[in-house]
């Protein structure tokens, strides 16, 4: 077990193994996302109240899922890097931050686009949207911090600490924002609840969520591989790799 763990910590070994997984992951994400999108956008029934505009959930919901999950991926990678001094985990953390921020932005953007036909405005201070916005700020903080240090190791440690503090805070932030929203909720705006969703609408969503997970893993791997090559650029195996191509 421990041998495996340390082997995984070797960037070179990880680079080689991940290279073999990449094509499959790419294939899975393309198949899942394309079929989910065609199914969801073309064949799923129209929503009784929102019409066709509801179909943006096929992007909005998976992106929101992964935006939050991505923060935990980042925090766990940071913690592993800090506790076991594993360089690879640091690299995963660095790779996860911009990806998570991008997904958070997509979730916010699609939410705004969805909001226009549904609520008549691009932006409302809905609990979920507000939490997403705070999450985006947390990501931006991590990215800004990681770019401020002169050495990568210090930067990784600092970001790991901030990500862990953020992780402890996220549930509190989400709860408090939820509670805040119930206090101020205007009577005219009511969300169409997700549980009432028709199974025919729900199945393509499930496919899309799976597809997004695969896509997330794919991009995270690609980002991490780039990070590995940058950091290990002076080692012999990277030099050989560069020459062989």
């Amino acid at each position: 077990m421990w041998q495996w763990f340390h082997k995984l910590g070797s960037p070179r070994w990880f680079y080689q193994i991940s290279g073999r997984v990449l094509p499959w992951l790419a294939l899975a994400s393309v198949v899942l996302i394309v079929s989910g999108a065609v199914w969801g956008l073309g064949f799923a029934p129209e929503d009784a109240r929102q019409g066709n505009s509801f179909r943006i959930i096929y992007i909005h919901v998976p992106a929101s899922f992964l935006a939050l999950a991505g923060y935990y991926v980042m925090a766990v990678a940071g913690a592993v890097g800090m506790i076991w001094k594993m360089k690879l985990a640091d690299m995963v953390m660095v790779a996860a931050a911009p990806l998570g921020a991008a997904l958070t932005f997509i979730a916010l953007f699609t939410g705004a686009v969805w909001g226009k036909p549904t609520w008549g405005t691009y932006w409302i201070w809905d609990a979920r949207i507000t939490s997403m916005l705070v999450l985006l700020f947390l990501y931006i903080g991590i990215i800004a911090l990681s770019r401020s240090f002169s050495t990568r190791e210090t930067s990784a440690r600092a970001c790991a600490i901030l990500a862990l503090v953020g992780t402890v805070n996220i549930p509190i932030i989400y709860k408090s924002v939820d509670w805040w929203y119930t206090l101020h909720q205007p009577a005219t705006i009511k969300l169409t609840g997700a549980p009432s969703m028709h199974p025919d609408m729900f199945k393509p969503l499930l496919v899309m969520i799976l597809g997004f997970y695969c896509f997330y893993a794919l991009v995270l791997l690609l980002n991490t591989r780039t990070e590995i090559l940058q950091r290990e650029s002076r080692t012999t195996w990277v030099k050989q790799l560069a020459q062989s191509k």
Binding site: F137, I140, A144, L145, S148, I172, I173
Partner: peptide, 23 residues
């Protein structure tokens, strides 16, 4: 503490901690 040795600490510090102040 995280930004203690950074020159542009002040604005960065606000970015880092303000989201945590929300609750």
């Amino acid at each position: 503490a995280l930004t203690v040795a950074l020159h542009k600490g002040s604005v960065l510090l606000s970015l880092l901690v303000m989201p945590l102040y929300v609750p």
